[in-house]
Amino acid sequence: MISKRIGIVDSIKDKSEKLEDIRVNINGEIQKAYNYPKMTGSVNVGDEVVLNTTAVELSLGTGGYHFVITNLNNIESSFTEGGHIMKLRYTPLQVKVDSVEEQESTYHDKISSFKSLNDMPVVVGTLHSMLTPFVASYKRNNKDKKIVYIMTDGAALPIYLSKNVETLKSKGLIDYTITIGNAFGGDYECINIYTALITAKEVLNADCVFVSMGPGIAGTGTKYGFTGIEQGPILDAVKKLGGNPIAIPRISFADKRERHNGISHHSITIFKEIVNVDITIPISNYESDKLNKIRAQIEENDLNRHNIVYIDNKNTKEDLDYFGLKVRTMGRNYEQDKEFFEAASSAAYYLMEVCDGDRRKDY
Rank of each mutant, 00 (worst) to 15 (best):
D153Y: 04
D144G: 13
N205F: 12
Q103W: 15
G186E: 07
Y188C: 00
P121H: 07
D187K: 06
Y194P: 00
K110Q: 14
Y176L: 01
A200F: 09
K223P: 00
A136T: 07
T177G: 06
Y160K: 00
H128F: 03
S137F: 01
K139E: 11
I198S: 00
G214R: 05
M213D: 11
G228V: 01
G154F: 08
T195L: 11
S170L: 03
V211G: 04
V135S: 02
N141V: 14
F210D: 02
I193L: 15
S212Y: 03
F134S: 02
N141T: 11
A206H: 07
K146R: 14
G185M: 13
V124T: 12
T220E: 14
Y138D: 00
S112H: 09
T227Q: 04
P215G: 02
T126R: 05
G216D: 05
A155H: 08
V165E: 01
T167C: 03
H128I: 02
V165R: 00
M151D: 05
I191G: 02
P121S: 08
P158A: 12
F226V: 08
N142R: 06
S116M: 09
N205K: 13
T179E: 03
T220F: 10
P121M: 05
T126C: 13
G125A: 01
E104Y: 15
K223D: 04
S113V: 13
M213C: 09
Q231I: 03
V211Y: 06
Y188M: 02
N164A: 10
G125M: 02
V135Y: 05
M213I: 12
N192A: 13
T177E: 05
I159R: 00
K145C: 05
H108W: 06
F210R: 04
G154A: 14
I229V: 14
N141E: 15
T227H: 03
M213R: 13
N118Y: 13
D119I: 05
K110R: 12
T177V: 12
Y160R: 00
N141D: 15
A156D: 10
Y160S: 15
M120L: 15
S116K: 08
E166C: 02
N182V: 06
L157Y: 12
G214H: 06
C190F: 07
T199I: 08
D175H: 11
C190E: 11
A218M: 11
I191P: 01
S212D: 14
A196I: 15
E189P: 07
F210V: 12
P158N: 08
I111S: 06
T126N: 15
H128R: 00
K110F: 10
Y160H: 10
I111C: 10
S112P: 03
C190T: 13
N164R: 00
C190D: 13
N142Q: 12
N164W: 00
G216Y: 04
A218P: 00
P133G: 08
I229L: 14
Y176G: 00
I174F: 13
P133N: 03
E166R: 07
V124F: 08
S116D: 14
V122H: 05
M120C: 06
N182C: 03
S116W: 10
M120R: 06
K169L: 07
K201G: 11
I159P: 03
L197H: 12
G216E: 01
G181W: 02
Y224N: 09
I180D: 04
